[in-house]
Design a protein around this nucleic acid. Structure first.
Length: 180
DNA sequence: GCCAACGTTGGC
DNA sequence: GCCAACGTTGGC
């Protein structure tokens, strides 16, 4: 039986049958304390790539598990630092997969709520794109009309993984004096 | 170092 | 299911 494409699209719902990575690149901001893991640590990692484990917040977990896809752009933010900066950019090298560190009893990220049959926590891999030679400071972001509304700058925003709009992505690169 | 803003936990 | 206590984040 031949089903007209329009009928199939309607039955498939508003998302249709396009997979996510055929649609649009998305942009994110990942926070990291540079004392723990900095953009230089990423640069010096094998293949300039690292896994992003240890996220233990459900909202961030949902992003990691459901939305963050290979090829997405990542702004690498240095939190709890002097100065606080967007230090560079990265690309998602591997979409969400279970955070296996949560399964390891002797690991600092162990969480008995999570097991391989039903993982509670997820992670992605990211690969360095650019170390900004002129990092973008938090103050610059606050002063820029395209960036002032960023989730990062909302008072009390503790989310360690945040969505970034394309406008913000472009504006951050403009402030860094770079092309994305 | 302080502390506001959260998210989580656990007693009830 | 409520909510107080607690722990953490992260800017200041």
């Amino acid at each position: 039986m031949i089903v007209p494409a329009a009928a199939f699209a309607a039955s498939a719902g508003p998302v249709s049958f396009l997979s996510r990575d055929q649609v649009m690149p998305q942009y994110w901001l990942f926070k990291s304390e540079p004392d723990v893991f900095s953009i230089e640590d990423l640069r010096d990692s094998p293949g300039k790539t690292t896994s992003w484990e240890g996220v233990r917040n459900y909202q961030a977990r949902n992003f990691l598990r459901d939305q963050i896809k290979r090829g997405d752009g990542v702004l690498f933010y240095h939190s709890n630092a002097k100065p606080m900066i967007i230090a560079g950019s990265a690309s998602v090298a591997k979409s969400g997969y279970p955070d296996h560190f949560a399964f390891q009893q002797d690991h600092k990220y162990f969480d008995p709520k999570s097991d391989p049959a039903n993982p509670a926590w997820y992670m992605v891999d990211i690969r360095l794109r650019q170390v900004f030679s002129n990092p973008v400071t938090r103050d610059q972001l606050a002063d820029d009309p395209d960036c002032a509304q960023m989730m990062l700058l909302q008072r009390g925003s503790r989310l360690s993984i945040q969505p970034v709009t394309e406008t913000e992505w472009l504006a951050v690169h403009r402030l860094a004096g770079l092309k994305p």
